[in-house]
Amino acid sequence: MINQRPSGEEPRTERVTRLLAAWGAGDESALAQLVPLVQSELRQIARRQMRRERNGHTLQTTAVVNEAYLRLFDVTGMRFRDPGHFLAMSARLMRRVLVDHARSRGAVKRGGGAVKVTLDDAFSVSDERTPDLVALDDALEALAALDRRKSQVVEMRFFGGFSVAETAKALSVSPETVMRDWRLAKAWLLRELRHAD
């Protein structure tokens, strides 16, 4: 069990790192604390970045990602005996946070029996079609049942935002393998989701 201290006293990064370590060691209650903590932190970062945009019209999303990793995950601190493991846990955490967030939004969205309009054919505010994270999460579970490593590669690359080299290191495989896994996994997921539509 984690010895909780008031959040104000413990620096955010340290707290996230500590909880991540606990979760990595098998403490599921640590995850229950991590998700809302990280979600609220991400929100603040996103808003801060938004205010920085003087016209208030575009959100520099890459800046959000950079700041999030800088503030939340002490990647260089190497507090873990196994840094690869730390990266993998960060990616898994990110997946949980973002899928939960999407799920909470989706519940409202699907509730009213709304007309389905994709961003592609309607007034578009964000550029790319944002993948449906909830459906992707389900498909990723199915992929894990078939080929666990490929689902991990997707988790690292897409949810974690890590590079091929970082992913290779975390999973103890060669970068070539990561690239091959990534390639096939994307085709597999794409097919899965198109059929799910």
Binding site: T61, A68, A102, S126, T130, F158, F159, G160, L190
Partner: peptide, 24 residues
């Protein structure tokens, strides 16, 4: 496909407090 990290794609919706307004 999936080449932009998930957080980047989701960042915009994180800014907002509540979920979308319900249909109707």
């Amino acid at each position: 496909y999936l080449e932009r990290p998930a957080l980047e794609a989701a960042a915009a919706s994180l800014v907002f407090d509540r979920g979308p307004l319900p249909a109707g």
